[in-house]
Write a protein that binds this DNA or RNA. Structure first.
Lengths: 213, 213
DNA sequence: ACTAGTATTCAACGCTCGTTGAATTTAGCG
DNA sequence: CGCTAAATTCAACGAGCGTTGAATACTAGT
């Protein structure tokens, strides 16, 4: 069975995603992207308006799907608990698990995109604007669900708890290899299953400690 | 009382720190740095070997002091608990509080440096190497202390818990303003006291949940 | 005042950057 | 085939990049 080449536009987006994830927006040139996509430099400006537009399209290409599967996971949890309240673990799991599963199941396809998110989330320049634009509607939905599960929480505590969650999750996405060094090989940055197994439990305990005072 | 100008080398380091923190290593040119430092471009290469060397010196300038005050805070906690075991909160507080206090007390001086750390920690390219080089000796010391406070912890659980801590802490350093948007103004990225007040409690609960199974 | 060393300025190097317009090839369709 | 529109190539633009070497100004110590 012969191999049909991907459309050029997709090849460019793939190359841009991989390179932006490694070195950031400014650390990559359009020429490097097009070289990796095996296409002429000027083709970038046939398919996209500018380097910045290319970057935005890389972001947009996958973000909607991510928001869909996470919302769906939350709705399933709420469906399952039509009569009682869902636990904090389950709500947090609905937030983290869909992404961690994608990353674990098709690492090749998703790792670069999540690395990009990790960098953006921690970028003083773009973090506030981009993350809010792409994710805050969904995040607000999750915070509402958590507010019901933690009815005694003060108004600020839930937001700060989510902030801690966000930091923990996106550092996982970065897959820097630091935990490999620190643990002397006991843990591996790419072992997403190990994270999936621990993160909801860890964070739920934090939420409860802070939002039940 | 007249104002004495800072030595040129320090002015360059200050300018580089601020700009690298905002836009990353690749996003800033030596010319921009020297323009902000109000000095000729070529002076950068009199005081430093290269752009990369300048970046390294920015990092090195403050990292030792940070490691010192955190180690000291840990030793004080251990001193205070010569007979019993220190609590997980206290150990984590010794890790986070010295930095958060610096940031709260002299924001002007420290905010850019911590923003830089936030970006590096989440950079797939540099995160593993640089963070390990600069911080892992100290972190190992803290993990040993936590192991004593959590004697039933499995070998991987402590490292993953620290990983979550690291992500939560460095996202705080980034001060992206996202939590301002998300909370509609209830929380502010720059309100470090609010973080200091919540982080040890939140994280200690997570550590205990994961490392006491 | 002379000197030695430090600090700073000036001009330039080769190279890469993002971007563009025009020319060319390719693919779909009557 | 012949026409049209989409896709791709080619060559180049002005600007900015990191870096360097030589010339100049400043600052101590004698």
């Amino acid at each position: 069975m012969a191999h049909t080449r991907q459309p050029t536009r997709e090849r460019i987006l793939d190359a841009a995603e991989a390179l932006f994830a490694q070195r950031g927006f400014e650390g990559v040139s359009v020429r490097q992207i097009m070289s990796q996509a095996d296409a002429d430099v000027s083709l970038a400006y046939y398919h996209f308006k500018s380097k910045r537009d290319l970057f935005d399209q890389v972001m947009l290409r996958k973000v909607e799907y991510l928001n869909e599967i996470r919302l769906q996971a939350l709705e399933e949890v709420e469906e399952r608990h039509r009569d009682d309240e869902p636990s904090v673990e389950e709500i947090i799991g609905a937030f983290t698990r869909p992404l961690l599963q994608l990353l674990a199941d098709d690492h090749e396809k998703w790792s670069h995109y999540f690395q990009l998110i990790a960098q953006i989330n921690n970028s003083p320049e773009m973090g506030g604007e981009l993350m809010s634009r792409y994710f805050d509607p969904l995040v607000s939905r999750f915070i509402d669900a958590l507010k019901k599960a933690l009815p005694d929480s003060g108004p600020a505590d839930l937001y700060w708890s989510y902030h801690f969650l966000s930091g923990a999750l996106t550092l996982t996405f970065a897959e820097t290899g630091r935990i490999d060094n620190l643990s002397g090989g006991v843990c591996k940055s790419t072992d997403i299953a190990a994270v999936d197994e621990r993160m909801p439990e860890f964070l739920a305990a934090g939420f409860r400690a802070l939002c039940s005072r």
